[in-house]
Design a protein around this nucleic acid. Sequence first.
DNA 1: GACAACTATATCGACACTAGATATAGTTGG
DNA 2: CCAACTATATCTAGTGTCGATATAGTTGTC
Lengths: 118, 118
Amino acid sequence: MPNLDPESLLPLPTAVFHVLIALAGKDRHGYSIMQDTSARTGGKVELSPGTLYSAIRRMLEQGLIQELSENPEPDNTDERRRYYRLTRFGRRAAEAEAARLRSMLSQARATGLVTGRP
Amino acid sequence: MPNLDPESLLPLPTAVFHVLIALAGKDRHGYSIMQDTSARTGGKVELSPGTLYSAIRRMLEQGLIQELSENPEPDNTDERRRYYRLTRFGRRAAEAEAARLRSMLSQARATGLVTGRP
DNA sequence: GACAACTATATCGACACTAGATATAGTTGG
DNA sequence: CCAACTATATCTAGTGTCGATATAGTTGTC
Protein backbone atom coordinates (compact mmCIF):
# COMPACT_ATOMS: atom_id res chain seq x y z
CA MET A 1 0.00 0.00 0.00
CA PRO A 2 2.83 2.37 -0.76
CA ASN A 3 2.46 6.01 -1.68
CA LEU A 4 2.39 6.11 -5.47
CA ASP A 5 4.38 9.30 -5.92
CA PRO A 6 7.98 9.36 -4.70
CA GLU A 7 8.12 13.14 -5.28
CA SER A 8 5.75 13.66 -2.36
CA LEU A 9 8.36 12.19 0.02
CA LEU A 10 11.08 14.69 -0.98
CA PRO A 11 13.33 15.84 0.42
CA LEU A 12 14.24 12.49 1.98
CA PRO A 13 15.71 12.79 5.48
CA THR A 14 19.47 12.25 5.45
CA ALA A 15 19.17 9.09 7.54
CA VAL A 16 16.64 7.60 5.11
CA PHE A 17 18.92 8.13 2.12
CA HIS A 18 21.79 6.47 4.00
CA VAL A 19 19.58 3.46 4.76
CA LEU A 20 18.61 3.21 1.07
CA ILE A 21 22.29 3.29 0.07
CA ALA A 22 23.16 0.60 2.61
CA LEU A 23 20.38 -1.68 1.35
CA ALA A 24 21.13 -1.12 -2.35
CA GLY A 25 23.81 -3.81 -2.57
CA LYS A 26 22.32 -6.45 -0.27
CA ASP A 27 19.66 -7.18 2.31
CA ARG A 28 20.77 -6.16 5.80
CA HIS A 29 19.61 -6.06 9.40
CA GLY A 30 19.55 -2.80 11.36
CA TYR A 31 22.89 -3.07 13.04
CA SER A 32 24.54 -3.96 9.73
CA ILE A 33 23.05 -0.78 8.24
CA MET A 34 24.70 1.22 11.05
CA GLN A 35 28.08 -0.42 10.44
CA ASP A 36 27.91 -0.08 6.68
CA THR A 37 27.01 3.60 6.90
CA SER A 38 29.85 4.28 9.31
CA ALA A 39 32.35 2.41 7.13
CA ARG A 40 31.14 3.93 3.87
CA THR A 41 31.40 7.48 5.21
CA GLY A 42 34.73 6.91 6.96
CA GLY A 43 33.07 7.42 10.33
CA LYS A 44 31.63 10.81 9.39
CA VAL A 45 28.05 9.58 9.65
CA GLU A 46 27.20 7.51 12.72
CA LEU A 47 23.49 6.69 12.81
CA SER A 48 22.33 6.58 16.42
CA PRO A 49 19.84 3.87 17.43
CA GLY A 50 17.10 6.45 17.85
CA THR A 51 17.66 7.78 14.34
CA LEU A 52 18.05 4.36 12.71
CA TYR A 53 15.10 2.52 14.18
CA SER A 54 12.65 5.37 13.84
CA ALA A 55 13.79 5.79 10.22
CA ILE A 56 13.25 2.05 9.62
CA ARG A 57 9.76 2.20 11.13
CA ARG A 58 8.77 5.13 8.89
CA MET A 59 10.33 3.55 5.81
CA LEU A 60 8.33 0.35 6.37
CA GLU A 61 5.13 2.39 6.69
CA GLN A 62 5.96 4.32 3.51
CA GLY A 63 6.81 1.16 1.59
CA LEU A 64 10.43 2.17 0.90
CA ILE A 65 11.67 -1.08 2.44
CA GLN A 66 10.16 -4.40 3.50
CA GLU A 67 11.04 -6.79 6.27
CA LEU A 68 12.06 -10.28 5.16
CA SER A 69 10.23 -13.22 6.64
CA GLU A 70 13.23 -15.49 6.26
CA ASN A 71 16.84 -15.14 7.29
CA PRO A 72 18.83 -14.66 4.07
CA GLU A 73 22.03 -15.80 5.82
CA PRO A 74 21.16 -19.27 7.18
CA ASP A 75 24.70 -19.81 8.45
CA ASN A 76 24.17 -17.03 10.96
CA THR A 77 21.88 -18.06 13.77
CA ASP A 78 21.40 -14.81 15.64
CA GLU A 79 17.63 -14.85 16.07
CA ARG A 80 17.54 -11.20 17.11
CA ARG A 81 18.32 -9.95 13.64
CA ARG A 82 15.57 -8.51 11.47
CA TYR A 83 16.45 -8.21 7.80
CA TYR A 84 15.26 -5.51 5.41
CA ARG A 85 15.13 -5.23 1.64
CA LEU A 86 14.81 -2.26 -0.68
CA THR A 87 11.50 -2.13 -2.58
CA ARG A 88 11.05 -0.92 -6.14
CA PHE A 89 9.27 2.10 -4.70
CA GLY A 90 12.29 2.72 -2.45
CA ARG A 91 14.54 2.67 -5.48
CA ARG A 92 12.32 5.13 -7.30
CA ALA A 93 12.33 7.44 -4.29
CA ALA A 94 16.14 7.27 -4.21
CA GLU A 95 16.28 8.24 -7.90
CA ALA A 96 13.99 11.19 -7.24
CA GLU A 97 16.08 12.30 -4.28
CA ALA A 98 19.30 11.96 -6.28
CA ALA A 99 17.80 14.15 -9.01
CA ARG A 100 16.92 16.75 -6.38
CA LEU A 101 20.47 16.72 -4.98
CA ARG A 102 21.94 17.06 -8.49
CA SER A 103 19.64 20.00 -9.11
CA MET A 104 20.70 21.72 -5.88
CA LEU A 105 24.37 21.28 -6.79
CA SER A 106 23.74 22.53 -10.30
CA GLN A 107 22.06 25.67 -8.97
CA ALA A 108 24.84 26.25 -6.44
CA ARG A 109 27.37 26.06 -9.28
CA ALA A 110 25.35 28.26 -11.64
CA THR A 111 25.28 31.12 -9.13
CA GLY A 112 28.98 30.79 -8.37
CA LEU A 113 28.25 29.81 -4.79
CA VAL A 114 30.47 26.75 -5.11
CA THR A 115 33.15 25.65 -7.49
CA GLY A 116 33.91 22.19 -8.82
CA ARG A 117 32.56 19.61 -11.19
CA PRO A 118 28.98 18.42 -11.62
CA MET B 1 31.56 35.58 16.36
CA PRO B 2 30.88 32.80 13.91
CA ASN B 3 31.46 29.14 14.51
CA LEU B 4 34.92 28.42 13.13
CA ASP B 5 34.16 25.02 11.68
CA PRO B 6 31.58 24.78 8.89
CA GLU B 7 31.63 20.97 9.17
CA SER B 8 29.88 21.20 12.53
CA LEU B 9 26.83 22.75 10.83
CA LEU B 10 26.36 19.86 8.41
CA PRO B 11 24.05 18.72 7.07
CA LEU B 12 22.64 22.15 6.29
CA PRO B 13 18.84 22.28 6.35
CA THR B 14 17.41 22.40 2.83
CA ALA B 15 15.98 25.88 3.39
CA VAL B 16 19.37 27.21 4.51
CA PHE B 17 21.09 25.94 1.36
CA HIS B 18 18.42 27.58 -0.79
CA VAL B 19 18.95 30.90 1.02
CA LEU B 20 22.71 30.63 0.44
CA ILE B 21 22.13 30.00 -3.27
CA ALA B 22 19.77 32.96 -3.52
CA LEU B 23 22.30 35.29 -1.86
CA ALA B 24 25.28 34.04 -3.87
CA GLY B 25 24.68 36.34 -6.82
CA LYS B 26 23.50 39.46 -5.02
CA ASP B 27 22.31 40.90 -1.74
CA ARG B 28 18.59 40.38 -1.22
CA HIS B 29 15.77 40.99 1.23
CA GLY B 30 13.65 38.13 2.57
CA TYR B 31 10.80 38.33 0.13
CA SER B 32 13.24 38.46 -2.76
CA ILE B 33 14.85 35.26 -1.47
CA MET B 34 11.41 33.61 -1.57
CA GLN B 35 10.79 34.75 -5.15
CA ASP B 36 14.22 33.81 -6.38
CA THR B 37 13.99 30.33 -4.88
CA SER B 38 10.58 29.76 -6.41
CA ALA B 39 11.75 30.98 -9.84
CA ARG B 40 15.04 29.06 -9.74
CA THR B 41 13.31 25.76 -8.88
CA GLY B 42 10.47 26.27 -11.32
CA GLY B 43 8.01 26.52 -8.45
CA LYS B 44 9.05 23.19 -6.94
CA VAL B 45 10.41 24.82 -3.77
CA GLU B 46 8.20 27.45 -2.17
CA LEU B 47 9.71 28.67 1.08
CA SER B 48 6.91 29.48 3.51
CA PRO B 49 7.29 32.55 5.75
CA GLY B 50 7.76 30.37 8.81
CA THR B 51 10.55 28.44 7.14
CA LEU B 52 12.25 31.47 5.62
CA TYR B 53 12.31 33.84 8.55
CA SER B 54 13.31 31.24 11.11
CA ALA B 55 16.10 30.14 8.75
CA ILE B 56 17.27 33.75 8.41
CA ARG B 57 17.28 34.21 12.19
CA ARG B 58 19.39 31.09 12.70
CA MET B 59 21.74 31.98 9.86
CA LEU B 60 22.39 35.40 11.35
CA GLU B 61 23.16 33.79 14.72
CA GLN B 62 25.50 31.29 13.07
CA GLY B 63 27.25 33.98 11.03
CA LEU B 64 26.31 32.48 7.65
CA ILE B 65 24.76 35.80 6.57
CA GLN B 66 24.77 39.39 7.82
CA GLU B 67 22.16 42.10 7.69
CA LEU B 68 23.14 45.23 5.77
CA SER B 69 22.86 48.56 7.53
CA GLU B 70 22.23 50.40 4.27
CA ASN B 71 19.80 49.83 1.44
CA PRO B 72 21.87 48.63 -1.51
CA GLU B 73 19.09 49.67 -3.93
CA PRO B 74 18.60 53.41 -3.18
CA ASP B 75 16.07 53.76 -6.00
CA ASN B 76 13.71 51.50 -4.10
CA THR B 77 12.18 53.22 -1.10
CA ASP B 78 10.35 50.38 0.60
CA GLU B 79 11.48 50.91 4.17
CA ARG B 80 10.18 47.53 5.27
CA ARG B 81 12.89 45.64 3.42
CA ARG B 82 15.80 44.15 5.31
CA TYR B 83 18.73 43.15 3.13
CA TYR B 84 21.10 40.25 3.73
CA ARG B 85 24.54 39.37 2.44
CA LEU B 86 26.46 36.10 2.32
CA THR B 87 29.50 36.01 4.62
CA ARG B 88 32.79 34.28 3.84
CA PHE B 89 31.86 31.76 6.51
CA GLY B 90 28.53 31.20 4.76
CA ARG B 91 30.38 30.50 1.53
CA ARG B 92 32.67 28.02 3.25
CA ALA B 93 29.66 26.27 4.79
CA ALA B 94 28.07 26.05 1.33
CA GLU B 95 31.25 24.47 -0.06
CA ALA B 96 31.25 21.93 2.77
CA GLU B 97 27.59 21.10 2.18
CA ALA B 98 28.15 20.76 -1.57
CA ALA B 99 30.99 18.32 -0.86
CA ARG B 100 28.67 16.32 1.37
CA LEU B 101 25.98 16.18 -1.32
CA ARG B 102 28.52 15.09 -3.95
CA SER B 103 29.69 12.37 -1.60
CA MET B 104 26.15 11.12 -1.03
CA LEU B 105 25.53 11.00 -4.78
CA SER B 106 28.83 9.25 -5.35
CA GLN B 107 27.95 6.59 -2.79
CA ALA B 108 24.48 6.14 -4.25
CA ARG B 109 26.04 5.57 -7.67
CA ALA B 110 28.76 3.24 -6.36
CA THR B 111 26.20 0.85 -4.86
CA GLY B 112 24.06 0.89 -7.99
CA LEU B 113 21.21 2.55 -6.11
CA VAL B 114 20.92 5.23 -8.75
CA THR B 115 22.12 5.61 -12.30
CA GLY B 116 23.39 8.69 -14.09
CA ARG B 117 26.38 10.97 -14.21
CA PRO B 118 28.28 12.52 -11.30
C1' DG C 1 33.66 -19.55 33.95
C1' DA C 2 33.68 -14.82 34.88
C1' DC C 3 33.77 -10.55 32.82
C1' DA C 4 34.12 -7.12 29.39
C1' DA C 5 33.14 -5.75 24.94
C1' DC C 6 30.31 -6.17 21.23
C1' DT C 7 25.95 -7.22 18.79
C1' DA C 8 21.12 -6.13 18.26
C1' DT C 9 16.76 -4.02 18.81
C1' DA C 10 13.75 -0.68 21.03
C1' DT C 11 11.89 3.45 23.47
C1' DC C 12 12.12 7.98 25.62
C1' DG C 13 12.78 13.01 26.06
C1' DA C 14 14.79 17.17 24.30
C1' DC C 15 15.69 19.89 20.59
C1' DA C 16 15.72 21.42 15.65
C1' DC C 17 13.39 22.07 11.17
C1' DT C 18 9.34 22.81 8.23
C1' DA C 19 4.72 23.96 6.84
C1' DG C 20 0.65 26.39 7.31
C1' DA C 21 -2.05 29.68 9.63
C1' DT C 22 -2.44 34.09 11.33
C1' DA C 23 -1.16 38.91 12.02
C1' DT C 24 0.16 43.45 10.67
C1' DA C 25 0.88 46.91 7.51
C1' DG C 26 2.74 49.33 3.41
C1' DT C 27 2.46 49.46 -1.96
C1' DT C 28 0.57 49.00 -6.54
C1' DG C 29 -2.86 48.76 -10.11
C1' DG C 30 -7.36 48.94 -11.97
C1' DC D 1 -11.67 52.44 -3.15
C1' DC D 2 -10.51 47.96 -3.12
C1' DA D 3 -8.05 43.87 -4.26
C1' DA D 4 -3.87 41.85 -4.89
C1' DC D 5 0.66 41.95 -3.87
C1' DT D 6 4.76 43.03 -1.05
C1' DA D 7 7.12 42.39 3.29
C1' DT D 8 8.16 40.87 7.80
C1' DA D 9 7.00 38.30 11.95
C1' DT D 10 5.09 34.88 15.25
C1' DC D 11 2.67 30.56 16.69
C1' DT D 12 1.40 25.78 16.59
C1' DA D 13 1.70 21.17 15.13
C1' DG D 14 4.08 17.53 13.02
C1' DT D 15 8.33 15.40 11.72
C1' DG D 16 13.27 14.24 12.12
C1' DT D 17 17.57 13.65 14.86
C1' DC D 18 20.36 12.77 18.76
C1' DG D 19 21.78 11.00 23.07
C1' DA D 20 20.54 8.37 26.88
C1' DT D 21 18.64 4.40 28.62
C1' DA D 22 17.01 -0.35 28.58
C1' DT D 23 17.23 -5.18 27.63
C1' DA D 24 19.44 -9.17 26.36
C1' DG D 25 22.11 -12.44 23.51
C1' DT D 26 27.07 -13.36 21.65
C1' DT D 27 32.02 -13.40 21.49
C1' DG D 28 36.58 -13.07 23.20
C1' DT D 29 39.96 -13.42 26.70
C1' DC D 30 42.31 -14.08 30.91
